[in-house]
Design a protein around this nucleic acid. Structure first.
Length: 852
RNA sequence: GCCGGCGUGGUGAAAUUGGUAGACACGCCAGACUCAAAAUCUGGUGGGGGCAACUCUGUAUCGGUUCAAGUCCGAUCGCCGGUACCA
């Protein structure tokens, strides 16, 4: 019985053995180096395209379903371009320096190099299992010394340009990662990577002067083809503001205080001043009576982390220094306070406080009973200020300037101050310089030597790469120094300049360093003389399309742009920006369940009842299905390996593209992939049918051309979901044919090939053609055949659809009206009514407006 | 709080940019094939009413512009992302 049953099952079962097909073609591409790309000067610039993915950090967790989303998108696009006659550079590599490997080393003693290599191998196997058309000969790994030699080289260029400086300043320190962090790496007061609470700590740091490029980083955003939201995020991060620096003399004549304000027009309303607690003037100006109070305040402020400072933001605190300053516009004496709501790192670290027109100052003034003076009014009259009025308006209470609108007043008063030598126009940025050192082992050593005589000396270029020494202990020293500091034979060196005693810099670079320029190394990965040759840079740059997650909106994209601009200024690259077009793929989320009280329930603890209700097994309580990020705790993580094993790489690729638009986040549903699997099986079965040289039915020819048009346009604009839908429509229509006309089938296989490359290769071969399908010419369509000659004309009465008519395309408005009026249904409905007007939209609809 | 983005069937989503709302797919229902099931194929499927032809209603909510609104404008609510004393 079982035998017979098995046999009959076999007969009807689909023969689509994706595992075998996919293995076969991956081997073929690999062995034939199908996607190896070389620079051919005969190919004109406009037919070259650089399509780049954000390279992954090779984590031990392996590939996440989010990775293949972007990779598939660029893969389809690259293959599409190749078939359209483009030279496409499409590389892949690994951002392989990073903390997780080092933390793993601390735990297990495994050298991070070893675990990293293992992870890379695993990643690569997973990436290759999806059949992407990368030119693997161009692979780069940032931890490879032939790569980081050039990271160090570029760092030295920055150093030479005066863009790297050493400073001992309070920095963000992650007690868990035991390292300093850049401002961008702190999220809500927590470490971006491990989420521990960030502390303030004084450490000697290398810092890159990214602020020197703030204006260009801002201005050049205009030249980029990026989504507006990412541009806005970068603009906000750079945070440019215009205002004035204004000088207030101290009342006792002992000096002056410079403040930055964006509202110089409110100077007449300044009733006090505030210095940041760390401001150097504080010590000088504090009177003896206030000394103790000021010292106490400084101590508490200093012990607070930035997070605590903001957490306690609801209640303003501060102490009077005892000193007074003179307001330059009216010579009034104003008290000088200190408060931690003023940050030393922004502007001049000091403000003039205008409580009438600034919320923070208002709050402070209320608490400490400082006078509030209105100097701006919406309509020029006085009101009692119940809260700060921060909008623009008309000046009042401002002496000779009364009546001036805010904007004009700003200019006038700035000029006035300038003439009196009391102020100057000024621009400020929220962007801070980039803290570039990490007290860690697994990163690029900073190639500098501290010499007793010569100071800081760069390691000569011919001695690069400065490689990482072997260590036995990976844990940071705990004193804030990197593990490298414990290796005397490495640290103690000769000064490259004077030959005297020198000590190597023991900080390493942050992970972002390697990713700041990797797109350039792909151009010329084996070059031992330069990071990339000028010819190759000219050949390919800029990156035409860059696809990756939005989580890098500020960090990576800002840093890489900064480095690129430095290289540009040195004449080493040919474009002011590295990434011309940027697309952020949406996150792939997953389903989870939520109890009425808002707590989340893992997916394996919930049953589905009647296909719509969800019941928590343990309690029988009904829960709601929600969309959540994939997480181990919710047990809703999808492993790409499982998907490839169960459905195949082609199905995985196509499903991820079919889920919805590339840019939006969307939930993974394993049910959804069945539809794609069925589609691919149907395509496979179609390929089993015999091919004929007969002419195809006219209707099907039209459908084919329509399909080519839709797939061509949608693939070109990265609208993969609708392109797939059109291919589904096509297969649905040809499914019932006994034999397939070659002229119908072959173009379809070509259309499918960027999406499901393995299956398409197989089908192409079955048609009797030679591989590779990826090297074929993209099918063309005829505009004329791509549109239906018969259209459905919608006839509306007062905007409501009343009937639909089949008419031929291209009728004039008059003809349309005539057709519409002839329709019996319409005749009936307009009987005895007055026609007000008729709107005819060619090839679409006729709307008859009637009355009565 | 501020700055972005988004709210369309039971579900993922389409909609030529102001012109047939729900393409395509999942799920569900029915039918064909089968002893039966699976697979496959065919048809149906926003909601309400009607035997039917039809009809009313429907794109978060309310209002507006228009012959015509998912699309434009105004207000409100909700979700997501960014940011947070930046003077």
């Amino acid at each position: 019985m079982t035998c017979v049953r098995l046999f009959s099952n076999m007969l009807f079962m689909s023969d689509y053995n994706f595992t075998e097909i996919e293995k076969k073609w991956q081997k073929y591409w690999d062995e034939n180096k199908t996607f190896k790309i070389t620079e051919d000067p005969k190919v004109p610039k406009e037919k070259r395209c650089y399509v780049l993915d954000m390279f992954p950090y090779p984590s031990s967790a392996g590939l996440h379903v989010g990775h293949p989303e972007g990779y598939t998108a660029t893969d389809i696009y690259s293959r599409f371009l190749m078939m359209n006659g483009y030279k496409v550079l499409h590389p892949m590599g690994y951002d392989s320096f990073g903390l997780p490997a080092e933390n793993y080393a601390i735990k297990t003693g495994t050298h991070p190099g070893i675990s990293t290599e293992e992870n890379i191998e695993k990643f690569e196997k997973q990436i290759k299992s999806l059949g992407f058309c990368y030119d693997w000969d161009r692979k780069v790994c940032t931890h490879n010394e032939h790569y980081y030699k050039w990271t160090q080289w570029i760092f030295l260029k920055l150093f030479e340009q005066g863009l790297a400086y050493e400073a001992e300043t309070p920095i963000n320190f992650c007690p868990s990662c035991k390292t300093g962090l850049a401002n961008e790496e702190v999220k809500d007061g927590n470490c971006e990577r491990c989420h521990s609470k960030v502390e303030r700590k004084n450490l000697r740091q290398w810092i890159l002067k990214i602020t020197a490029y703030a204006d260009r980083l801002l201005a050049d955003l205009e030249t980029l083809d990026w989504s507006e939201s990412i541009k806005i995020m970068q603009r906000n991060w750079i945070g440019r503001s215009e205002g004035a620096n204004v000088t207030f003399d101290l009342a006792d004549g002992s000096g002056e205080i410079e403040v930055y304000t964006t509202r110089p027009d409110t100077l007449f309303g300044a009733t006090y001043m505030v210095l940041a607690p760390e401001h150097p003037l504080v010590e000088k100006i504090t009177t003896s009576e206030q000394k103790q109070a000021i010292e106490d305040y400084k101590t508490t402020a200093n012990s607070k982390s930035d997070l605590e400072r903001t957490e306690l933001a609801k209640d303003k605190t501060g102490v009077f220094t005892g000193a007074y300053a003179i307001n330059p516009v009216n010579n009034k004496k104003v008290p000088v306070w200190i408060s931690d709501y003023i940050l030393m790192s922004y502007g001049t670290g000091a403000i003039m406080a205008v409580p009438g027109h600034d919320e923070r100052d208002f709050e402070f003034a209320k608490k400490f009973d400082i006078p509030i003076i209105q100097v701006v009014s919406r309509d020029g009259t006085f009101h009692e200020l119940k809260e700060a009025f921060t909008e623009d308006g008309v000046a009042v209470n401002s002496g000779e300037f009364d009546g001036l609108p805010t904007k004009e007043f700003k200019e006038k008063i700035t000029d006035w101050l300038d003439k009196k030598g009391k102020g100057k126009k000024a621009v400020n940025y929220k962007l801070r310089d980039w803290i570039f050192s990490r007290q860690r082992y697994w990163g690029e050593p900073i190639p500098l030597v501290h010499c007793e005589k010569c100071g800081i000396v760069a390691v000569p270029y011919d001695q690069l790469p400065l490689t990482l020494p072997e260590v036995k202990v990976f844990a940071p020293s705990g004193t804030g120094e990197s593990p490298l500091a414990t290796i005397d034979e490495w640290v103690n060196t000769k000064c490259p300049k004077c030959g005297g005693k020198g000590k190597r810099e023991t900080n390493t670079m942050p992970q972002w360093a390697g990713s700041c320029w990797y797109y350039l190394r792909y151009l010329d990965p084996d070059n031992g003389k330069e990071f990339a040759s000028k010819e190759k840079i000219d050949y390919w740059m800029p990156v035409n399309l860059y696809v990756g997650g939005a989580e890098h909106a500020v960090l990576h994209l800002l840093y890489a742009r900064f480095w690129h601009k430095v290289l540009y200024d040195l004449g080493l690259v040919n474009t002011i920006e590295p990434f011309q077009r940027l697309i952020n793929q949406g996150m792939i989320t997953s389903f989870a369940y939520q109890r009425k009280n808002g707590s989340l329930v893992p997916v394996d603890e919930v049953d589905e009842a009647d296909g719509e209700k969800y019941i928590e097994k343990a309690t029988g309580e009904q829960v709601e299905r929600i969309i959540a990020k994939m997480s181990k705790s919710l047990k809703n993580v999808i492993n790409p390996d499982d998907v490839v094993r169960d459905f195949g790489a082609d199905a995985m690729r196509m499903y991820e593209m079919f889920m919805g638009p590339l840019e939006v986040s969307k939930p993974w549903s394993t049910n959804g992939i069945f539809g794609i699997k069925r589609f691919l099986e149907r395509v496979y079965r179609l390929g089993e049918k015999s091919l004929s040289d007969e002419k195809a039915d006219d209707k099907l020819v039209r459908l084919l051309h329509k399909t080519i048009k839709k797939v061509t346009e949608d693939t070109g604009s990265l609208a993969f979901n609708t392109a797939i839908a059109q291919m589904m429509i096509f297969t649905g229509e040809i499914n019932s044919l006994e034999t397939l006309p070659k002229t119908l089938w072959e173009p379809f296989v070509l259309l499918l090939s960027p999406y499901a490359p393995h299956l398409a290769e197989e089908l192409w071969e079955k048609c009797g053609n030679k591989a590779s399908v990826a090297m074929q010419k993209w099918p063309e369509f005829s505009e004329e055949l791509a549109i239906d000659d018969v259209i459905t004309l919608v006839v509306q009465i007062n905007g409501k659809v009343r009937t639909k008519l089949e008419t031929s395309r291209g009728l004039s408005k008059e003809q349309l009206e005539e057709e519409a009026m002839k329709a019996p249904r319409i005749q009936e409905l307009i009987e005895g009514k007055a026609i007000v007007k008729i709107i005819a939209v060619p090839d679409r609809l006729v709307n008859i407006v009637i009355k009565g």
